[in-house]
Design a protein around this nucleic acid. Structure first.
Lengths: 341, 341
DNA sequence: CTGAAAGCGCTTACAG
DNA sequence: CTGAAAGCGCTTACAG
């Protein structure tokens, strides 16, 4: 079949008996052009369904109005919520978005950065792949365009970073458990020292210290992949102890839900015998029984803030490299898994 | 700060004392160029971190290798699963992806189509906004580039459409309930006649007919927004009947889960008194208690298939407009909400 | 085997 | 108020 080509400035110009320059200016509301000319040009443009070719435009002006976004896994609700707000906020500000997934693969992530650069995006938003150690590509990108990190960040990359108040959020969660009278609070965290896991662990320790509770290594559990299955497994370990904990703080909802499933199986009363608190406020936290107390991370706000800072840097390139860290406040959502009946 | 610009062919050419043409050809492995020249060009290109400017390239060749994707809501797991596979499959085939959300807003959807066209994407993948009636913009796009619809489709748009076997899937689900000995099966569906809801309803009716069960309008419930809350509400209506159903087929997992929550509240035994089957195999279906029997929609396969057909049409534009409908098979996942103990 | 030149669709400094 | 011309970075038919 024969595809129609898009209408071009040239065709409009020919049709109107004007020059391409004039048509271009008329469409862009240049003050030099007379109102009547503008009028007639716009009418014909609408009639012929003229849409400017953004490639030509961006190519010419060295500005594409495209933002590149790199995340590890788009199917995580937290991630897709952030993406949704990025799409919305970017669109409001006149930018389009190209999304890539690294799948937590560092090599892939580097490759995506290169691709972004090929496409001449005006800036990049990125949440780092787990265990990212090689940051040279990110640094090279940073030399060419603004880069803003969010959620999974790294101090090795001197750029604006948008995070939640991880430490404080964890502190609040544990403090809440202490407020319920819990004295032996286990934690389920990640083995490797991801930014997020480390901060949450720090908040846990601070809460115990501040309220004079002993820190017991035996109930500080770590796992590589902090998933539902691992939550179950770790909960079973806790249940097998003579000196069981009376509360569990899991640094992800999935692990917390796995723990609840394990506790339910053994008919442990939640929260009376063991209270459980998660982190993320995923949908599942309202589906599980009992419903899960958890930290709500405002993905929406994270996305919008990241876009705001990135576009600010794109449009005001005068600023020097700034390593600003922006903390977004979270909220503890108390539900049945920790509610003192 | 001073951003570095990307290295260009011109710079490479100057450095090497070659013409731009030769450098371009060397990089593209043109047969005319000598091995040594290619070698030296490629070495310098790597050293100087040369990345081709895709804008210039696409602009010149009238091919961007970008696919536009329009979905209604990226945060639905089913949608993000499809998107994930679209990203993967497109990348394998050398395409990048621009994603837009319509938020089920028809005007927004039209706008997105125009934007896609502005960016000169090579083709568009789209899942229609609910209640889409105005298809002129889609038809215009179709005149300019290949368009493939998936999931939410419309017979008004003559293009390749990727769907699941909605009718058969619903038939199988209801047949399964009948196999358990259920004789009075309620359905929760959508008020408006979306493609998906209609097909599932048709499957429901066919199963009842085929097994000689009466169709009772009173237990055929419709709602505009087939959500968890609505599922609860409709379940309460069913429970208030003198002649209660012994099974519920909800055309979405959310509604099914809402129903289960309502039944749990009234201590109705699931599946003995009332069995429940949903549709989607969302994560929640394994979190709810009892776990939910549901139709697994292979989002992954839908995405890959859509990309495959679209790129096929992009790269072989000779084919005439073809209204092919591709059906992806689904699977009934039987869990506790319908398992005869 | 290599180069000069045109051109993709647009914007914009320059000239009138 | 309008137009001719250059140029963004690349590819490719044409010439040698």
């Amino acid at each position: 079949m024969n595809r129609k080509r898009n209408t071009t400035l040239k065709e409009l110009a020919k049709e109107l008996g004007l020059s391409i320059s004039t048509v271009s200016r008329a469409l862009n509301d240049h003050p030099d052009i007379s109102t009547e000319t503008k009028e007639s040009v716009k009418i014909l443009a609408a009639q012929m369904h003229y849409v400017p070719n953004m490639f030509a435009k961006g190519f010419r002006s060295q500005k594409t109005n495209i933002i590149g976004v790199i995340v590890s896994n788009i199917t995580h609700l937290f991630t897709s919520t952030i993406l949704k707000s990025i799409l919305e906020e970017a669109e409001i500000r006149g930018y389009r978005v190209i999304i890539s997934e690294s799948n937590n693969n560092e090599a892939k992530q580097s490759e995506m950065l290169t691709t972004m650069s090929q496409f001449g995006v005006d800036g990049v938003l990125m949440s780092l792949a787990r265990k990212t150690t090689y940051v040279d590509d990110a640094l090279r990108i940073l030399n060419r365009m603004p880069l803003v990190l969010f959620d999974k960040v790294s101090s090795k990359i001197p750029c604006t970073q948008i995070v939640i108040n991880e430490e404080e959020a964890a502190f609040n969660a544990v403090e809440h458990l202490i407020g319920l009278g819990k004295k032996r609070i286990a934690i389920m965290k990640e083995t490797e020292n991801s930014y997020n896991s480390e901060k949450r662990y720090a908040g846990y320790l601070r809460a115990l210290n501040q309220y004079g509770l002993p820190v017991d290594e035996k109930i500080i559990l770590s796992t590589e992949d902090i998933s539902l299955v691992q939550g179950k497994r770790l909960a079973n370990i806790l249940l097998s102890m003579k000196n069981r904990p009376d509360a569990i703080f899991a640094i992800t909802d999935n692990a917390a839900i796995g723990a609840i499933k394990a506790l339910n199986k053994f008919k442990i009363k939640i929260p009376e015998e063991i209270a459980v608190v998660g982190f993320s406020n995923s949908i599942n936290s309202t589906i599980i029984s009992p419903t899960l107390t958890t930290v709500d991370q405002p993905g929406d706000k994270i996305g919008r803030t990241a876009v705001k800072y990135l576009i600010e840097e794109i449009e005001n390139p005068k600023n020097d490299l700034l390593t600003k860290t922006v903390e977004i406040k979270t909220n503890l959502v108390v539900r049945d898994s920790s509610f003192k009946a």
